[in-house]
Structures are given as structure tokens and as C-alpha cells.
Amino acid sequence: MKAKNEPGMTLIVKTITRLTVGLILLYGIYIVSHGHLSPGGGFAGGVIIALSFVHLMLAFGKDVALKKLSMSFAGLLESMGAVMFLSIALLGFMGGYFFLNFFSKKGLPFHLFSAGIIPFCNIAICLKVGAGLFAIFVSLVLLYKTDE
């Protein structure tokens, strides 16, 4: 079933991947955005988002995945996530303390738009973790390839 010089796995895997990869990405985004209400949050969601790209890379080979999210862009996103997290923490000085939850003293349970800075922190962590994990995976793959 596999064409000779085509990178990646067989047609079955590719078809399934094409169907599922978007869903995995969406699920990751859901976990991130509901991190303050349900189990999960920035780290878990970020890992799932990174896994969707890793999935793409495993099925279609590294070039397809790198076209969607290049290595340098992943590195940039990672640093931006960290800078964003730090600036959210810095904004807490508006209320007088580092890391203060400055625009909502107390969140409402079970409401998506509550909890002040926590959802933003989750998004920042998600960027950092997702891009970071993807970058780690890609750099390990590239290290291995140079060996051959």
C-alpha cells in the first residue's frame, strides 16, 4: 500500500491521522480553556497540543509537520509563552504583590469567564509547554537523522 519514496507510514495510518489530528488539537484547546474549572490546565493541554503535532510527524514524516509549525517558530512561541507568563505575574504589582490575581479577587465556580488571571496563565503555560515539547521532540528526531 505504501508508495516507495513517500515518507511516513501507510495509507491507513495517514487517513486515521487526518481524521483525528484536528480533534486532538481541539481537545487540547478545550483542556487549556477549562483549566480553571476542571482537571487539566496549561500543562496537560499543552502536552496534548504538542502530541497532535507529534502525531502528524509520526504519520506523515517530519517535513509535513515542520511545514505546519517550524522549529524556529516553536522556539519563538516557547519564549513568548514564558515572557507572557512573567508579564502576567508582573501585572500583579498593580494590586501590590507579585503574582497577585489582580482583577478578580474570587472566582465563581463553574463559570468559564471567571478566575481572573488564571486562564491567561494557563494559555501562557500551554504555549510554553506545547511549543517546548514539540521542539524537544523535533530536535531529538533531527539529532537522530544526522547520525545516519
Partner: peptide, 8 residues
């Protein structure tokens, strides 16, 4: 990563 480099 270090182990891969060592292998190289």
C-alpha cells in the same frame, strides 16, 4: 539528547 550525542 546527551546520550545521542555521545553515541555520535
Amino acid at each position: 539528547a546527551i546520550a545521542i550525542r555521545i553515541y555520535e
